[in-house]
Amino acid sequence: MDMHVWLAYVATAIVFSLAPGSGTVNSISNGLSYGTRRSLMAIAGLQVGLAIHIALVWMGIGALVAQSALAFSVIKWVGAAYLIWLGIQKWRDRSSFVAQQSNHQLSSIQLMRKAVLINLTNPKSIVFLVALFPQFIDPAKDQLTQLLVLGITTVTIDAFVMLGYTSLAAQMGRFIRSDKIMSGINKVFGSMFMGCGALLAAAKA
């Protein structure tokens, strides 16, 4: 994988991980309830779920590439359009972002198990990866190597971002709960998603 392609993916993966979602809510909730250190197993659990999604996505994309180059090109265009649509939806999102503190303490294993299930049961994650991966995969090069690079990059970035959210929540819980702040975050990341989609579409022209 060329360095400029990887760097472009790193930028996109950072936006993907930073955008508020179920994993973010879980990380902030754990940070508020348990602190950073006790939440590390939950962060690991989120990455286990994400890694499983990556493997599932790759099996589908690999089969698609093997069967039809045209179909692969189509899904790349659909993926770019999806990023723009996701940005519009995120811009318009007015949902609350209140992380509830737990009334009872969970063990580290329980926190990890809960986090794995949160990511595994999040269909938006796997759909996003289906839209994202083909933008950065060269069908003419070794597929497995590219998957490993993208997968490891995705998991590493997401782990650091979730750690950041957890640590921030542990120190600034009241600020993070603000609906006004959440609205601003949605608009910022909505704009980023639309920008990424537009750039990907322009690169194919």
Rank of each mutant, 00 (worst) to 15 (best):
L32W: 06
A66S: 15
L56Q: 04
Q47C: 14
S73F: 10
I52L: 11
V57T: 05
V57L: 07
Y34G: 02
S17T: 12
S73I: 13
V65N: 00
A66N: 11
V57S: 05
G45A: 09
N30T: 02
L32K: 01
I54A: 05
S17Q: 04
G21M: 09
G21W: 07
I61A: 09
A44P: 07
M41R: 07
F72N: 10
G49N: 01
S39K: 07
G62S: 14
L56S: 04
V25T: 12
S33R: 09
A63V: 13
A19G: 03
A42L: 08
V48E: 00
M41E: 00
V48C: 14
Q67D: 08
S68N: 05
W58F: 14
S39E: 09
Q67L: 14
N26D: 07
L18F: 14
Q67Y: 07
S39T: 14
G35H: 03
R37M: 13
V74Q: 03
G49W: 03
A44R: 01
I52V: 15
L64N: 06
T36G: 00
A69G: 06
L46I: 10
P20H: 10
S22T: 10
N26L: 15
H53Q: 11
R37Y: 12
L56F: 07
T24Q: 05
A71S: 13
A63S: 14
N30R: 08
H53G: 07
Q47M: 14
G49V: 08
R38K: 15
L70Q: 09
S73C: 03
A51V: 04
L40R: 12
I52A: 07
S73D: 13
L18Q: 02
S68E: 10
L32V: 14
R38M: 11
I43T: 14
G35L: 07
I61L: 15
A71K: 04
S29G: 14
P20V: 13
H53L: 05
Q67W: 03
V25M: 15
V48I: 15
T24G: 05
S68G: 10
G49R: 01
I52W: 00
Q47Y: 07
G35T: 05
L46R: 03
I54G: 00
A63D: 04
N30S: 11
A69N: 10
V25S: 09
V74W: 12
